[in-house]
């Protein structure tokens, strides 16, 4: 059995009276490519946001490489209004991390709608992902005492850009690139953070079939090249079935199925959810 990278246990996210993610549990092992699918509004991105610290889930536990990164139980007003399950299971210690800390621990992500820094060049966009791990402080950086560190960051960035085939665009403003390349750049930026787990939120959104195919090969390749685990949300079924080792399906925040791509394809619940049966 491979090492467990991400362990999600009974995560519930409730906004007011709406339970967006309902008692979701999943496990992702090292080196796997796991997909999370579901109809629109099923709560996939919310689940991502709970894992990466953008939202603090109402209840539940998320562990990364055996270390809890998020742990919460219904508190305050939520105590009375909580509609989910297991309200008493995670009493006690509350672990809440901001997204930057979770990224520093080794989870990097991309966004559904591309979020590149629009005033910066391709090179700077990737370079900045190195900022968090650089050995420097604001004085050494201002007065250029961190020359070695800065050079190392620049070299690593250049190396990564060459690997990703983005080096010829390095001085262009990030948002002036064609859409497909912007997606790629966003993934490159996430890789620059040297993650163990990469979360991709609809990487193929807005891509044509050929681009999607290229992306499929690309995702596999980065998994092998950088030795990372990939967890993705996607709507393109071709891509999902092609690439995934395992698939989780959710609808209305609840998991309705999980398993190998072949099993999911035949699962009547999944077919119902997608065809609205």
């Amino acid at each position: 059995m491979a090492n467990n990278v991400l362990h999600v246990e009974n995560v519930t996210m409730q906004f007011g009276g709406v339970v967006a993610v309902d008692n979701l549990s999943m496990d992702i092992n090292e080196g796997e490519i796991v997909s999370l699918i579901g109809p629109n509004g099923a709560g996939k991105t919310t689940a991502f946001n709970c894992i990466t610290g953008v939202y603090e889930p109402t209840n539940g536990l998320v562990e990364f490489c055996g270390k809890p990164i998020v742990r919460n139980h219904p508190q305050g007003k939520m105590k009375k209004n909580y509609l989910g399950q297991n309200p008493d299971m995670y009493l006690g210690e509350v672990v809440a991390n901001t997204p930057d800390i979770i990224t520093q621990q080794g989870i990097a992500r991309t966004f559904q709608n591309i979020r590149l820094w629009k005033s910066m060049t391709v090179f700077e966009n990737v370079l900045l992902a190195k900022h968090m791990n650089a050995k420097q402080n604001v004085f050494s950086a201002t007065f250029r005492f961190n020359k070695k560190e800065e050079e190392r960051m620049r070299e690593e960035t250049m190396e990564l850009l060459v690997q990703q085939g983005l080096d010829k665009y390095k001085d262009e403003i990030a948002t002036s690139l064609p859409y497909g390349l912007q997606r790629r750049l966003e993934i490159a930026r996430a890789l620059a953070a040297e993650p163990k787990l990469l979360l991709l939120d609809e990487p193929a959104a807005g891509m044509n079939p050929q681009e999607t195919e290229e992306l499929t090969a690309f995702i596999r390749q980065i998994r092998d090249d950088y030795n990372i685990t990939i967890f993705l949300i996607e709507h393109h079924m071709n891509l999902v079935m092609d690439i995934s080792d395992r698939i989780y399906v959710i609808e209305f925040g609840k998991e309705i199925a999980h398993g190998l791509p072949k099993e999911i394809q035949k699962n009547p619940k999944v077919i119902d959810a997608y065809l609205g049966g």
Partner: peptide, 23 residues
């Protein structure tokens, strides 16, 4: 410097900046 770039990242997109490990 690196910090200046981080400031610009916060200006351009706070969510992305935080997701890339900038406190």
């Amino acid at each position: 410097s690196s910090y200046g770039r981080a400031f610009k990242a916060i200006r351009d997109d706070e969510v992305a900046a935080e997701a890339m490990g900038i406190n």
